[in-house]
């Protein structure tokens, strides 16, 4: 049963190297802190948004450039099952604020000494098991709603990915400028 349990050593080494860098970056970025994450949702700290938007824009430029140059075989897009994506997202948001971490940052928070994150990860394992038990019912009821397959915005809009990436980058810059102004005002008021 369940064998083999371990993937091959090279795959594991690659995953571990990725996790080391990812965990290091998350902790240095401060997004492994409960206060930082919760205060993003209260619009009092914009670290999470700045980090994610920057990662998305930088990431998208490289991934689509490599795709066009044939350096990577393809994308790894998750299927649009919009009732599942939206419903899951709504549930996820409640959990994220209650716990104060997301799955990845909870693991990283354990590394910096946050004991509540250990409890959160234990709860997360229970949540995963509960979902697995609930899946057959969900697969019958919610999963079939608004299924569109592995679609991306450039495909749906019928434009070059660079148009979407350009738009995204412009939005990110506007958000960063607005957030910067707000932070400046808050700093003056303090």
């Amino acid at each position: 049963m369940l064998s083999p349990f371990f993937a091959d050593p090279k795959t594991l080494a690659m995953g571990a190297a990725t996790g080391l860098v990812f965990g290091f970056l998350l902790q240095k970025g401060g997004v492994t802190r409960y206060n930082v994450i919760v205060n993003q949702f209260r619009f009092k700290d914009f670290t999470v948004l700045k980090t994610m938007l920057t990662a998305i824009v930088v990431g998208s430029i490289g991934i689509y450039a490599m795709l066009q140059m044939g350096l990577i075989k393809g994308l790894s897009v998750k299927p649009a099952e919009l009732a599942m994506n939206a419903g899951g997202g709504l549930i996820f948001g409640v959990g994220m604020v209650l716990l104060g971490y997301c799955p990845g940052t909870a693991l990283a928070a354990i590394g910096q000494g946050s004991r509540d994150a250990i409890v959160g990860v234990l709860g997360a394992l229970i949540g995963a098991a509960v979902y697995a038990e609930a899946y057959p019912a969900i697969a019958r009821s919610i999963e079939p709603i608004a299924k569109y397959g592995k679609i991306t915005f450039p495909e749906v809009m019928g434009v070059s990915p660079w148009v979407v990436i350009g738009g995204l980058a412009a939005i990110a810059v506007v958000v960063f400028v607005l957030v910067g102004k707000r932070e400046g005002k808050a700093a003056l008021a303090a």
């Binding site: 998750k78 299927p79 099952e81 599942m84 994506n85 939206a86 419903g87 899951g88 997202g89 709504l90 549930i91 996820f92 948001g93 409640v94 959990g95 994220m96 604020v97 209650l98 716990l99 104060g100 997301c102 799955p103 990845g104 909870a106 509540d116 994150a117 409890v119 959160g120 990860v121 234990l122 709860g123 997360a124 394992l125 229970i126 949540g127 995963a128 509960v130 979902y131 697995a132 609930a134 969900i138 919610i142």
Partner: peptide
């Protein structure tokens, strides 16, 4: 934290990612 973690992962798996 425990309850939040459980809700979090349930939502992540339903959405297909975190």
């Amino acid at each position: 934290a425990f309850v939040g973690g459980a809700i979090l992962l349930f939502g992540a798996r339903m959405a297909g990612g975190c």
